[in-house]
Simulated assay, not measured.
Amino acid sequence: MAMSVLTWQKSSYSVDAANCIYVAAASDSTIKIRESGDPDTIITSTPDRLRAFLHGVKAGEFDHLTT
């Protein structure tokens, strides 16, 4: 079975390529997420779950994890 090639995108806020989170839309309608420090580890999510997470990030629900 052939695997589709993912087109990874990083945030324009990521200035250091060694500290980035990348996302890609897969052909099976899932979202793939990886980080530059361990690019072989890929998390799979759905658009709805990612949307809910991003709303939480924007609302500051996870700010305590970065201090």
Rank of each mutant, 00 (worst) to 15 (best):
D38Q: 06
W8E: 07
A26P: 04
D40S: 13
S12M: 00
R49F: 10
D40E: 12
W8Y: 01
S12Q: 12
V57Q: 03
F53K: 11
L54W: 09
G60A: 05
D48A: 12
A52Y: 06
T66M: 01
R51N: 12
T44M: 12
A17E: 10
Y22K: 13
T41H: 15
D40F: 08
S29Y: 08
S12Y: 08
D40I: 05
V57F: 10
S29G: 06
T67I: 09
V57W: 06
V5G: 08
Q9E: 12
M1A: 11
S36D: 14
Q9H: 10
P47K: 11
A25K: 13
D63R: 08
L54N: 10
N19C: 01
A26W: 04
E35C: 10
S29D: 14
S12L: 05
V57L: 15
Y13T: 07
Y13V: 15
I33D: 04
L54D: 08
D28L: 10
T41G: 10
A52T: 00
Y22S: 14
M3L: 03
L6C: 04
T7E: 11
D48P: 05
I42V: 06
R34C: 02
V57S: 07
C20E: 15
S12V: 01
R49S: 13
A17D: 09
A2W: 03
A18P: 06
R34T: 01
C20F: 02
F53P: 01
K10T: 15
A59N: 13
A24V: 00
T67C: 01
C20P: 04
A2S: 08
C20W: 08
G60H: 09
A26H: 08
S14E: 15
E61F: 09
S27E: 14
D28G: 06
A2L: 00
K32N: 07
Q9F: 13
S36Q: 13
Y22R: 12
R49G: 13
T30D: 04
G56V: 08
D38W: 11
P47N: 09
V15N: 15
S4V: 04
I42N: 13
T41C: 14
M3H: 09
G37R: 11
V57E: 04
T41E: 14
V57K: 00
R49D: 14
R51P: 02
I43Y: 14
V23C: 12
T30W: 01
T44K: 15
S36C: 02
K10V: 15
T7C: 13
I42D: 13
S27Y: 05
N19H: 07
I21M: 00
S4C: 05
V5P: 04
S45W: 08
I21K: 00
F62G: 04
V15I: 00
H55K: 14
V5H: 03
S29W: 02
Y13C: 14
V15Y: 15
T66V: 02
D48C: 05
E35P: 01
A2T: 05
Y22W: 05
T67H: 01
I43P: 06
I33N: 08
H64R: 10
W8P: 00
F62D: 08
A59L: 10
M1T: 05
V5T: 08
